[in-house]
Design a protein around this nucleic acid. Structure first.
Lengths: 176, 176
DNA sequence: AGTGCTATCTTGTCAATGGAAAGATTGGAG
DNA sequence: CTCCAATCTTTCCATTGACAAGATAGCACT
């Protein structure tokens, strides 16, 4: 066996993402991740400290990915909403961890930095803070409900778009 | 020690609600609950089977409570949204479990029945299915974001109301 | 009262897990 | 080539969820 895995940290985060997506955060086992990576059960502790550390890294990566997705739809509030939902559905493991304070180390610098990136991307969408908050809520709620199975259908984006439109489009005349 | 607790099932669900609210579902320990109730570590298994069984009962109770809250605001979509958010904030332990398929026994009859009650209460809000879906998404998203700390403020209902209004009010002329 | 039945709870046990401690190995800087 | 820091391993412990088997208590029925 090689003493050095080479890129254990990255491998662990990727494995954690799939594991959380399939079995939920509670079903994640540090020892299971270590087995998958072919290292001893104590190897993860070196990179992440503890279980919450792994999930913290996963959440941070999630916020970074989300910030990128939002930036790509810059300017268009509706497109950003669709991007938000698409991100959540494409990265369920990340999403399941990003907004759960009980699972991560809230004060972790890497997490805070990633959160700020995503926060900035959200703030750049519109100068109307309340409109942004509303758009965020619909997108987040729709994504959560879709992932939980409460809302389902053949096409996420297709189902999300008309819902997002209601909270996003044509409201400027009431808030301006 | 009394061999019979008297109302262990109810006591366990109540204790689970506070424990989940404080430490999250992962921080819940069956043995901890048993200690709180003053019974042996195996007593919970008789009533709930396993850990997921406890959370299933908690989720079912949550859906029943939610259905009641929604029914009380019957007819008014905006008031129902506020009721939804208020329920989530008042019962964070229940809410944290209700929409997480990885934590419960999805096929449990009691859970399914409670879900149907809540589902019916939602459907009774408006004949416009898409409007209901939009209202549900905003309310759910706002509640989740508020509970996660992503949105905060002095008053939940006060902060939620204008956000809900955007997705709820004055849209009927576009959908009718 | 006495008898059996069933739900409730206990004790004992096991494998798996997270975490801590201490040591081994590696690669690279000087 | 030596030293050092990062990475990983081995060993160990307490806690946990789950299971099996047995004890107790309330209750219906006679």
């Amino acid at each position: 066996m090689n003493y050095h895995h080479g890129d254990l940290r990255r491998a662990m985060i990727a494995a954690a993402a799939t594991a959380v997506a399939e079995r939920g955060p509670a079903g994640l086992s540090l020892r299971g991740l270590a087995r998958l990576a072919g290292v001893s059960h104590a190897a993860p502790a070196h990179h992440f400290g503890d279980k919450a550390g792994v999930l913290t890294a996963l959440a941070a990566e999630g916020f970074t990915l989300l910030a990128t997705a939002l930036d790509e739809a810059r300017g268009d509030l509706l497109a950003s909403g669709v991007a938000y939902v698409t991100f959540a559905v494409d990265h369920p493991g990340h999403f399941a961890v990003m907004f759960d304070r009980s699972l991560v180390h809230r004060e972790d610098p890497g997490l805070l930095a990633a959160e700020r990136k995503a926060s900035a991307a959200l703030a750049d969408l519109t100068p109307d803070a309340e409109a942004a908050r509303a758009a965020w809520s619909v997108a987040h709620g729709f994504a959560a409900l879709w992932l939980s199975g409460a809302i389902s259908g053949p096409d996420v984006a297709g189902a999300a778009e008309p819902v997002l439109r209601r909270a996003v489009a044509g409201r400027s005349e009431l808030s301006g």
